[in-house]
Design a protein around this nucleic acid. Structure first.
Lengths: 335, 335
DNA sequence: CTGAAAGCGCTTACAG
DNA sequence: CTGAAAGCGCTTACAG
């Protein structure tokens, strides 16, 4: 592979001069500059970012560890993160934890060894030693969507409490009284807090949330199916199932379908996270939509602040309810 | 950040010895080894992959440039690629071209500067100079799903011709005679060949494919909507719309829905690429399924062969038809 | 089994 | 405006 040295000798200058031209250093005579540039194209020279990073101690790269690439919410988030980063001259390396703490650990380690300038994480678990060490060691770091309690790391997320309250009010108005939820892992903040928000909203309506109506999922499809099956096998099944993410809602639909049950006639369904397909399912699904793109942008903004030595504050955005037909009403506002 | 030098002095050995321990070199006395390992954990040392890569001329990283992360087909492909790579000790950096040639170019350049060991691409266009140069320069490279004609680069893809033929036979049997297709960009092989396969299958049934039934999409949602609208505004609209990918099928559904048309009563719909949600749409959508996971695995296998100096052959797998209700029949085999 | 030393491809004070 | 030289953090022949 051709190096800066080849370019230098081809152009008849020193490597220092080539470097200056490549980095747009002002103190280079125009004639020299164009001679170097010509050599660069003639030789098809491509700078070695590895060497540059070793020397400059920065990679201009951000690491993003997400819980599950196959979850459209995270895909959209990743896309927004990449866009925002690119606009500011950073690349991003994505690690997919697949909702497994061990895999998350693997990606964090790999990213740290690659000396990424900053780390964006949506943690799969309650906080491993490595993550705590990284935070303590001063690695620029921001949590997005989910976070780890007790760490001094900015968090960019959407608060769904008001939207969950709206959802419960909507369900209550439709006459539903037996409401069940499929939550995420209790180690994750979103797993935890969505259930808490649901419970608080039920409470405000004088409704109970019995243990058997609290399914324990893992944010992936299969758990949605499994927990829905458990609900349906109860002596008194719920009238509504609220899935804490779109993948578990998919699993719930799989189960309902295999049992030949109709939504919303036989049972109502709602989901956290809105996705384009929810408009075309049978029936269209009532969902709580997060401002996903904005979350990604704000998270990058905060992280780059940290990377460049400035401070960064946490950001809380609002989620909102989008009602469709899956809970029994004719369609309201949608998109 | 603590370096190998710190570990060496802490353990009272040379950096060479630390390096040997870290790389599992056999010629290290057990006592020395454990002393070094202790220092490593005590200091919280994390190897610098940047320095190592500069020295060894390998990054153990593969680059993957996909056409669109928001397309579930590519997300699933990316996930399979990452899994396969990780199993073999490689990381992967994903670049999202968003179906834009300029963005693809940006990612390829960035990945090359980072000195990735090999490049996996699903090209958005007919072949830019950079891609040709990279191939000519001997960069280990494999195309997946889509490819660029005239380059000596292995291709891992699924042949959809038989499945398209099955689809047309299915449509014909249901009495449909006016069939339209929304194709992808003609510069892409999949954009091109899916239309060609469709045309050939129609031909085999003695059916024409008039120009006005050949929509020109770009594999993204909005184009599916636009082309469907154009079909519907025709004096004699088609009886069936076949979208060459799932995103354009989504756009088609958006348009049909906004016009209050029913599928399949008013118009039939089928799509290339199967996704989990197609089972739950109204109605479930007939689709051509690719062996996505296997494509990803085979592609990585081929690329690593090249990276490690061995040769690699192209691989062609088969796509298959999955019939559901969107074309007018009761459900057949599905999943 | 272990260490001293060269070198990977850059950038950047320091001189001139 | 330009160059010589040091150094980033590793790995690996070469000696011993």
């Amino acid at each position: 592979m051709t190096s800066i040295k080849d370019v230098a000798s081809h152009a008849g200058v020193s490597v220092a001069t080539v470097s200056r031209v490549l980095n747009d250093h002002p103190a280079v005579r125009p004639g020299t500059r164009s001679r170097v540039l010509t050599s660069v194209t003639e030789l098809g020279y491509r700078p070695n970012a590895v060497a540059r990073s070793l020397r400059t101690h920065q990679t201009r790269t951000l690491g993003l560890v997400i819980s599950d690439v196959l979850n459209p919410f995270f895909t959209e988030l990743a896309r927004a993160v990449e866009d925002a980063a690119r606009e500011r001259g950073y690349s991003v390396i994505i690690g997919n934890a697949d909702e497994r703490a061990a895999l998350q650990e693997h990606h964090v380690r790999t990213l740290l060894e690659r000396r990424i300038d900053g780390l964006l994480v949506s943690p799969t678990d309650g906080g491993t030693a490595m993550m705590r060490d990284a935070a303590a060691a001063g690695t620029p770091m921001v949590f997005v969507d989910r976070w780890i309690r007790g760490l001094d790391v900015p968090v960019v997320h959407a608060d769904g409490r008001a939207a969950v309250h709206d959802l419960v009010a909507h369900l209550y108005a439709l006459g539903h009284r037996r409401l069940a939820i499929i939550g995420g892992p209790s180690e994750t903040t979103t797993g935890d807090e969505r259930v808490a928000a649901f419970r608080a909203a039920l409470d405000a309506h004088g409704l109970p949330l019995p243990r058997e109506y609290t399914g324990q999922g893992d944010f992936q499809t299969e758990s949605g199916r499994r927990e829905t099956a458990a609900f349906l096998d109860l002596p008194v099944p719920p009238e509504v199932v609220f899935a804490a993410d779109n993948l578990m809602a998919l699993g719930a639909m799989d189960e309902l379908r295999s049992r030949g049950l109709r939504v919303p006639e036989d049972i109502a369904l709602a989901a956290f996270d809105d996705i384009p397909w929810f408009l075309h399912t049978d029936p269209p699904i009532t969902a709580i939509a997060q401002p996903t793109g904005e979350l990604g942008h704000k998270a990058v903004e905060a992280l780059i602040s940290l990377v460049e030595g400035r401070s960064a504050a946490s950001v809380t955005l609002e989620a909102r309810l989008v009602t469709r037909r899956s809970c029994g009403e004719s369609e309201g506002k949608s998109r």
